[in-house]
Write a protein that binds this DNA or RNA. Structure first.
Lengths: 129, 129
DNA sequence: AATTTACAACGAAAAAAATAGTTATGCAAC
DNA sequence: GTTGCATAACTATTTTTTTCGTTGTAAATT
């Protein structure tokens, strides 16, 4: 499985915006920053670093570049959570969820919702065997 | 609710070791590093920064310090996951779990395990009302 | 009590990350 | 075609993080 490199905080901010807007020019990304917005060149530099790291690509329109995510938000979140679960819950997703269930980090309603979805998944996966 | 500051990568490494060994002197922490181990002073500095940030405290034995975590691994993981869920699953723990269930990131066995725990929790919480 | 050892504290140096100024160039407006 | 604007690329600066050498001192060793 391909290893997805970690993003720095600044890089992650830009990725979050790109994921939200799907694709965009530097000025589009800039618009989505909260005040105080960084300088145009700051964003431009970060997006080029993201390109080097393989997180985005671009489509050139003459001289201007439209940036497009290459790594999806779900891919990144998957690898992010995986390493979190590894470091904090000795690689057990089950341990993580039950920890948060016990800690009342999630409500009964949420738990019931999760159970419903999981029951369906369990059924589906058992059928597909 | 108290905000727990983010740890840098180096700081997190030291915290992981401290959490594992419960408490320890700099040399104890150093022992638990994989090769290539950092210099003694590197660890000493990081642990003092962690102290400034309020993550650890120390007990002095004469001139030497035994460092003890102040923020527990579960406290930190809670705040860590919370911000992850916020950024990646619009604050819904349920969305996160179901995403990973759907993505087959977790096995049927794990799901069943989780469901069992959640059922118990649901019962408990409903009773306590 | 002189010497060595062990350690915290300090501070400096190096590396990484974040920010933004400068430059060059293509394109549009005149 | 000259001027001005927009933008990417490049480079420099600043800030933060990481790393570790140096120093001072207490305690242990001789």
């Amino acid at each position: 499985m391909q290893v997805i490199r970690e993003l720095t905080r600044a890089e992650e901010q830009v990725m979050q915006i790109l994921w939200k807007i799907k694709k965009g020019f530097v000025k589009d990304i800039l618009e989505h920053f909260d005040e105080p917005k960084p300088a145009y060149n700051t964003v431009s530099t970060i997006v080029r670093i993201l390109q080097d790291k393989g997180f985005v690509t671009h489509k050139a329109y003459g001289r201007t570049h439209e940036y497009i995510p290459l790594v999806s938000k779900s891919e990144y979140s998957k690898s992010h959570l995986r390493s979190f679960v590894k470091d904090y819950f000795s690689n057990s997703f089950e341990k993580m969820v039950s920890f948060f269930a016990k800690e009342k980090g999630i409500s009964v309603k949420e738990m019931e919702e999760i159970m419903k979805i999981m029951e369906n998944e369990v059924k589906k996966q058992k059928l597909s065997k």
